[in-house]
């Protein structure tokens, strides 16, 4: 009987795995097929080789990566101190923090960008004779639009919050802080030397989610008139369909590669301690000489 239910469960697992796999893999396979099988030319990799020479590819990808880096720094810079402070000093503020960080989930990015463009239009008009006018100009600088960093930061708050909160739940922040302080560490050093190293996985997760969001974000960038990577892909899709899909496939691979890098970096805590390795190495020498 037990074996029977077991087998039935396995069967379902297989079915679910198959359906989910098809759901994800079929579109992917079609995309790849579309890019390499050009009608009239047969199998060709020209759309992939054409990417590098396509105008705007490098600049838009670099812009997006820069924006992503700035967003990650800003999000972590905001959230980590806030979450630590809430955990250590004001546990009753935690629900508030959670609600605030989840708010962007219920505000569609179209509504968000409508608000942004309203402010960007209104601001210069009313502040034209104040130094703030220059600020408004600067945040919209097309070579590095700070306003996008601000928007992305808001949008990635819910994701980063979940990732960091999960990490904080796994460690006893208060005890770690107190242990470090009783060992003579100032509060700031205690955070950097005792708490943050143990949040490495969570920090990596939060960073990765933010990166993934920024790489794929289209609405805000397009509506505010900038050309980050996703906007460039859509733009080029109008003229060179194969190329744009090839870029999508490539960016998917890029995202996966980055995910693996981040995951590996987050996991490397289980590495063999340096000193143990150093000790193990000389131990081999006498053995070899003995034999």
């Amino acid at each position: 009987m037990a074996r029977l239910t077991n087998r039935r469960i396995r069967w379902w697992r297989g079915a679910v795995g198959l359906i989910a796999g098809l759901y994800f893999l079929v579109p992917l396979a079609c995309s790849v097929l579309f890019t390499v099988d050009v009608p009239g030319q047969g199998f060709t990799l020209s759309s992939y080789t054409g990417i590098l020479s396509a105008s705007g590819f490098t600049s838009s990808l670099l812009l997006t990566l820069e924006l992503a880096a700035a967003t990650i720094v800003l999000v972590l810079g905001l959230l980590v101190p806030a979450l630590l402070a809430a955990r250590l000093g004001a546990p009753r503020l935690r629900p508030l923090l959670e609600v605030v960080c989840s708010l962007p989930l219920v505000v569609p990015s179209v509504a968000l960008v409508a608000g942004y463009s309203g402010v960007l239009r209104w601001g210069p008009q009313y502040l034209s004779r104040t130094p703030l006018f220059q600020t408004f100009v600067a945040v919209q600088n097309a070579s590095f639009p700070v306003v996008l960093v601000l928007a992305y930061t808001v949008m990635s708050l819910p994701l980063a919050y979940r990732a960091l909160d999960a990490g904080l739940r796994a460690v006893d922040v208060r005890t770690l802080m107190e242990a470090a302080r009783s060992c003579g560490a100032s509060p700031v050093r205690a955070v950097f030397q005792a708490v943050l190293p143990n949040l490495r996985g969570a920090l990596m997760n939060a960073s990765f989610l933010t990166l993934a969001l920024v790489l794929g974000e289209y609405t805000v960038g397009a509506l505010l008139g900038f050309r980050p990577f996703a906007v460039w892909i859509v733009g080029i899709g109008g003229s060179q369909a194969q190329l744009s899909v090839a870029v999508s496939v490539l960016s998917l691979l890029l995202t996966w590669a980055l995910l693996l890098v981040f995951a590996a970096a987050g996991r490397s805590r289980t590495r063999i301690p340096r000193r143990a390795r150093a000790k193990a190495a000389p131990a081999l020498v006498p053995q070899e000489s003995a034999s």
Binding site: D172, T175, L176, R181, S182, G184, A190, P273
Partner: peptide, 27 residues
């Protein structure tokens, strides 16, 4: 707290998880 000359052992396990025993002691 960090300028008081007091060593403390806590109720819950309070070793720094990212450090070896020797590094914990040397913290």
């Amino acid at each position: 707290a960090h300028r008081r000359d007091a060593g403390m052992v806590f109720q819950s396990y309070s070793l720094f998880p990212h450090l070896t025993a020797a590094d914990n002691v040397a913290f």
